[in-house]
């Protein structure tokens, strides 16, 4: 159990540095530290699938973020917003904080999942019958591709749309440079 606290404190410190530093490059690198801490945490939470995916996604996301920040004439933007916007932001944060504190009181204690107390929970069915019904030893793969295939289909659609959006956003420049190079 101690390892969770150590990793969470590490992630919190990295997140605070990422938020508060003025240099964008070090801020991005601290976000990478948060992601790596999360990946190790997933490993200790008995979720190896998520750990593998998280660490690789973290590397690619870091490359994307560094692409955005490097070679700009890094203007150090400091200071906060003006008064009205700041007040509205603080109020929003306060509301979410109060709602979160209220929810935290009602959660089950750490280490006892809800589905272990409910006799006919969906997760219990997946664990008990997943291998027999789908033939996949990895229950997570059985869920995402067989029991909940629609979810994966929707995910593929969202990924496709966001990638198309990013490409369209950058397209005119791309096309111009490709044409310049070709002829």
């Amino acid at each position: 159990m101690v390892i969770f606290y150590v990793l969470l404190v590490f992630m919190l410190i990295a997140a605070i540095i990422a938020v508060e530093t003025d240099d964008l490059l070090s801020s991005v690198i601290c976000v990478g530290a948060v992601g790596v801490g999360g990946s190790i945490m997933f490993l200790f939470l008995r979720a190896p699938d998520i750990a593998i995916t998280q660490i690789v996604v973290e590397v690619l996301g870091l490359i994307i973020l560094i692409r955005a920040t490097i070679a700009r004439d890094l203007t150090f933007i400091s200071g906060d917003r003006e008064f009205f916007g700041l007040v509205v932001s603080i109020v929003i944060m306060l509301v979410i904080f109060l709602a979160g504190v209220r929810v935290l009181g009602n959660l089950p204690p750490f280490g006892t999942p809800v589905f272990s107390q409910v006799p006919d929970a969906a997760s219990r069915t997946y664990i008990a019958e997943g291998l027999q019904k789908t033939g996949a030893a990895n229950i997570v793969a059985a869920i995402i591709l067989d029991y909940r295939g629609y979810d994966t289909l929707g995910e593929a659609t969202v990924l496709f749309t966001s990638i198309i959006g990013a490409t369209v956003m950058l397209r005119s420049k791309c096309r111009k440079s490709l044409e310049d190079r070709n002829g």
Binding site: I64, D73, I163, T167, C174, K176
Partner: peptide
């Protein structure tokens, strides 16, 4: 394929952009 595509597009864009302005060469 899609993640390669988006990083490739970002790379094309950033390199063109760098030619104009000041360059910290990576």
């Amino acid at each position: 394929a899609s993640l390669f595509l988006v990083i490739f597009a970002l790379s094309v864009f950033c390199n063109d952009f760098r030619c104009k302005g000041s360059a910290r060469e990576l």
